[in-house]
């Protein structure tokens, strides 16, 4: 390779490496802010103050959903299999909301440690199959990730 081209090659490589390094440090510094939601464990650890707006993500505990007949009030519990946080919400829930489903709620904690949500979003997993197949897998107890798959460890870490 001609020296001039080699020089340019090194220059271009250094440029990319430099930017990559800067971006990496930036992302590490803002790691907490990039997280879309906190886990129930984070809340249990007392990282969140009452009245502070944030998002919480977890799985809707089986059998915890209580609805009212008269209005849209809903109560349920969110868990990451380490800690559980009670949630209340008034509004229309997304189609995918059900027990055992992963959801992300926006809101704040009240004085009693109940999360008052103003918005509830459903997370879905990366598995796609026809209903009959899902039924068969369910029967065989081989359903992959019955809840939304969170993929990373941040949710399950104690």
């Amino acid at each position: 390779m001609k020296p001039k081209r080699k020089q340019r090659l090194i220059l271009v490589s250094l440029m990319v490496a430099g930017v990559a390094l800067a971006v990496t440090f930036g992302l590490i510094a803002f790691n907490q802010n990039i997280m879309l939601f906190q886990s129930p464990s984070d809340v249990a650890a007392g990282n969140m103050e009452a009245g502070q707006r944030f998002r919480i993500g977890g799985m809707v505990v089986d059998g915890s959903v209580q609805r009212r007949d008269t209005n849209l009030d809903v109560q349920f519990s969110l868990t990451d299999h380490a800690s559980t946080v009670p949630v209340t919400y008034n509004g229309i829930l997304p189609d995918l909301f059900r027990e055992g489903q992963g959801i992300v709620a926006l809101g704040k904690l009240d004085d009693k440690g109940v999360f008052v949500a103003s918005e509830v979003l459903a997370k879905h997993d990366e598995n796609y199959m026809p209903p009959e197949v899902a039924e068969a897998l369910e029967k065989a107890g081989k359903m992959p990730g019955t809840a939304a798959n969170y993929g990373n460890t941040t949710l399950v870490q104690p």
């Binding site: 790691n31 990039i34 997280m35 879309l36 939601f37 886990s39 993500g57 992300v104 979003l121 997370k123 879905h124 997993d125 990366e126 598995n127 796609y128 199959m129 026809p130 197949v133 992959p144 939304a148 798959n149 969170y150 993929g151 990373n152 941040t154 949710l155």
Partner: peptide, 19 residues
């Protein structure tokens, strides 16, 4: 990071989680 978006369905090393 924690995202609302689900992980990839088709990955090179894994069996795709799609019928």
């Amino acid at each position: 990071w924690n995202t609302l978006h689900q992980p990839a369905t088709i990955t090179k090393f894994d069996k795709p989680s799609m019928h």
